[in-house]
Amino acid sequence: PEAADLRALSRHLYEAYLKYFPLTKAKARAILSGKTGDNAPFVIHDMKSLMEGEQFINCKQIPTQEHQPQTSALSVGHGGLMGAHLGSECNILDAVELRFFHSCQSRSAEAVREVTEFAKSIPGFINLDLNDQVTLLKYGVIEVLIIMMAPLMNKDGTLIAYGQIFMTREFLKSLRKPFCQMMEPKFEFSVKFNTLELDDSDMALFLAVIILSGDRPGLLNVKPIEQLQETVLHALELQLKLNHPDSLQLFAKLLQKMTDLRQIVTDHVHLIQLLKKTEVDMCLHPLLQEIMKDLY
């Protein structure tokens, strides 16, 4: 009976994952391996193709700041985390670059909403103290977004705009400092993470485990959070045994990734905080500001 309950929990979280996250790993890997026929993604590999990419895609406008340029926005995939846009007096190429970073922020804010809805679907989450729900999301959401970037990435680049665009790693490395430094650590992490070969049903459980971390600073009532996490951990362990019977120590390897993840988030937040200090007129999306303020 206990195993049956754990399997039911796994199914529930997988269904919530499919409901709230539009680009699954299965779909992303099909796109990346060219199995989607004529629907190959548009490739952005330089400034010219970045400008073409803006016209290539029909994307939704997500207004954020009052003085944002009203231009078409590239909706970035799960991983729009670069989080900065800069002020005026730019040439045309700079303006394109800036619009891209603005789009990253808009997509990140939307992704935070998706992760919040997923968190609310974890049994017991909405019964936790409301302050603790806020804390768990504040500290967990960037970790979740970075994990969700991994399926969109390979060693050569990343899918963005819900899989409609592939942006090369070399192009991201060619952006001016410090923007060029933002994605490279995520690529390094993702390439290693992808060797674990998790599927979407495994990912759903792993994301829930991350969200239910009882060691986040400032939690008021740790015990119920740890109890919820323990149940999801059992479900994850069972899931991995059944889904990856030949992959030795996969559960342990996956848990070790959580340590690497915290370092990546810390570095990312420090980079954003540095940007705020050094870049004139830089604005952060209010939701991202809330999350990153006093984070690490």
């Binding site: 935070v112 909403r113 919040t116 729900q133 806020v134 504040k138 209010p286």
Partner: peptide, 21 residues
């Protein structure tokens, strides 16, 4: 804490559309 995280709090309390974000 929820006072300092009004948008996050709103997201937790009800579904907010991307435009509202």
């Amino acid at each position: 804490l929820k006072e300092k995280h009004k948008i996050l709090h709103r997201l937790l309390q009800n579904s907010t559309s991307p435009v509202e974000l």
